[in-house]
């Protein structure tokens, strides 16, 4: 079986992600035994970002690395493993919000292909680039009468 990076490289839908991972020097880390769970945005997810967003990040590798590592979790979590895990801590350090009731979602992204097995973990393909939700986010949502499972 191939590892996470090899799977991404062999798939045409992940060209932007692969370029970003290479630029951020994360190829070795994501090829290591891990295991990891990667929420991998497809090219169209990056294309949804306003002009300049990616360019600024590619020019600033530590900042790009931070955004990319928000898409990675230590450990192998298939969809079925996430039923009782509404929050996961990313490698970046911030939390990911998981919803597996009905549609499979992470933050505001929908998983369009789940449980792609790799040697060193699992890939869930997502339709939107996810960004760290700031510390005030939960408080604002609760104030508006919306609570997330924790």
């Amino acid at each position: 079986m191939a590892n996470i990076v090899e799977i991404a490289v062999s798939n045409d839908s992940f060209q932007t992600l692969v370029t970003a991972v290479k630029a951020a020097n994360l190829v070795d880390a994501l090829s290591s035994p891990g295991p990891f769970t990667v929420f991998a945005p497809v090219d169209s997810a990056f294309a949804k970002l306003p002009a300049g967003t990616i360019t600024t990040l590619v020019q600033n590798i530590p900042q790009l690395t931070r955004i990319l590592t928000y898409h990675v979790v230590a450990g192998k979590y298939k969809k079925a493993d996430l039923l009782d895990k509404p929050r996961l801590t990313s490698l970046e350090g911030s939390e990911l919000y998981i919803n597996v009731n009905g549609t499979f979602e992470v933050n505001n992204a929908t998983v369009i292909a789940a449980d792609i097995e790799a040697d060193n973990g699992v890939i869930h393909v997502i339709d939107t680039v996810i960004l760290m939700r700031p510390h005030w986010f939960d408080g604002i949502m609760e104030s508006g009468g919306y609570s997330f499972r924790k």
């Binding site: 939700r133 700031p134 408080g139 604002i140 949502m141 508006g144 919306y146």
Partner: peptide, 27 residues
């Protein structure tokens, strides 16, 4: 960045957007 498009077809997503807007205005 953290929630959904304004024209999202999923009503749950629109509810989340509304809670976010109302939560902001509650300040």
């Amino acid at each position: 960045a953290f929630l959904y498009p304004l024209d999202d077809p999923n009503p749950d997503h629109l509810r989340a957007n509304r809670a976010y807007f109302e939560g902001q205005l509650n300040r």
